[in-house]
């Protein structure tokens, strides 16, 4: 028994090593200066330039037009991540509410129509979506960045399943208590869905945060750059004798990883609660 435990731990430690090593290397490399990285490749030791690199990365105006700082990119990523998550939750909750609680013509058909959009991710409809946004003049706006991505079959489906598990008696008790459809939603369903909302927020925030293709298409002004795009941008300046700021690219990568990791770590217990048990 004891032996298997040691082996188990070795396997787990190996897993941790595989997962963590690239992150550690990226972080260590980001603390060296660009020349070091250029000459000696990836680093696994502390380079001592932590403050310089990160300060410069956050404040120095970079990019082609020299307009965008790291801090700006962090903000953009946050706007995209939060806007995306909040918008998706609001929209899919309302859709699920309609599907579960209102008997309207062809409700089932509508549900399956929403459901089949799972088979049509953004990449499939990217050209028509872009076309629509251009015609609406929403290129280079946050609205254009966020709105076309909001409709979410996943979210709608999650909330539908959850609402279906809410006992009918709660609705009936609320009706007798004089709560109309709106009140029932706000007073009863939304508070009951709290853990569910938290879980979906995490998933959607990370998803929005990591968007690459769509922002690249929708925004060409550098003031709209997100972190994920910024990393690429830094490496693009390798012209002539100029050395790309490898250290800053790694610093950006670390920074881009940080918020999703933090959110998952902090909300982990909520996340598990939301997906496994219900607060009824």
């Amino acid at each position: 028994m004891h032996k298997t435990k040691v082996v188990d731990h070795l396997i787990l430690l190996f897993g941790v090593f595989i997962m963590m090593a690239p992150v550690v290397v990226a972080f260590m490399t980001s603390t060296h200066d660009a020349l070091d990285v250029h000459l000696h490749g990836l680093q696994v030791t502390w380079g001592g330039h932590f403050t310089d690199t990160y300060h410069e990365m956050l404040t120095k105006k970079g990019g082609f037009t020299g307009e965008v700082t790291g801090a700006r990119m962090v903000m953009n990523s946050f706007i995209l991540g939060v806007g995306f998550a909040v918008g998706k939750i609001v929209l899919s909750m309302l859709a699920a509410y309609a599907i579960v609680y209102f008997r309207f013509r062809m409700g089932v058909i509508f549900f399956w129509m929403i459901f089949t959009t799972l088979l049509l991710p953004l990449e499939v409809r990217i050209l028509p979506s872009y076309d629509v946004m251009t015609k609406l003049g929403l290129v280079n706006t946050y609205t254009g960045l966020i709105v076309p991505l909001l409709a979410s079959a996943t979210g709608t489906f999650f909330f539908r399943q959850f609402f279906k598990s809410v006992p009918d008696e709660l609705l009936e008790a609320a009706r007798i208590d004089g709560a109309g459809p709106f009140k029932f939603f706000i007073d009863i369903l939304v508070p009951l869905s709290k853990t569910m909302i938290a879980a979906i927020f995490i998933i959607m925030f990370v998803y929005g945060w990591n968007q690459y293709l769509w922002p690249m298409l929708m925004t060409n002004e550098e003031s709209f750059y997100t972190l994920v795009r910024g990393i690429k941008q830094i490496l693009l300046v390798w012209v002539g004798s100029q050395i790309p700021e490898y250290n800053q690219a790694f610093a950006l990568a670390i920074l881009a990883m940080l918020p999703p990791v933090l959110i998952v770590v902090i909300f982990q217990s909520w996340f598990i609660k939301g997906l496994t048990e219900s607060d009824k």
């Binding site: 006992p167 008696e169 709660l170 009936e172 008790a173 609320a174 009706r175 007798i176 208590d177 004089g178 709560a179 007073d187 009863i188 508070p191 009951l192 709290k194 607060d279 009824k280």
Partner: peptide
Amino acid sequence: VEPAERDIAMVFQNYALYPHM
């Protein structure tokens, strides 16, 4: 008449208390 307007009160088998209140 709507349930709320009927001037009745109902006690349910599973109580149907609002769990978050």
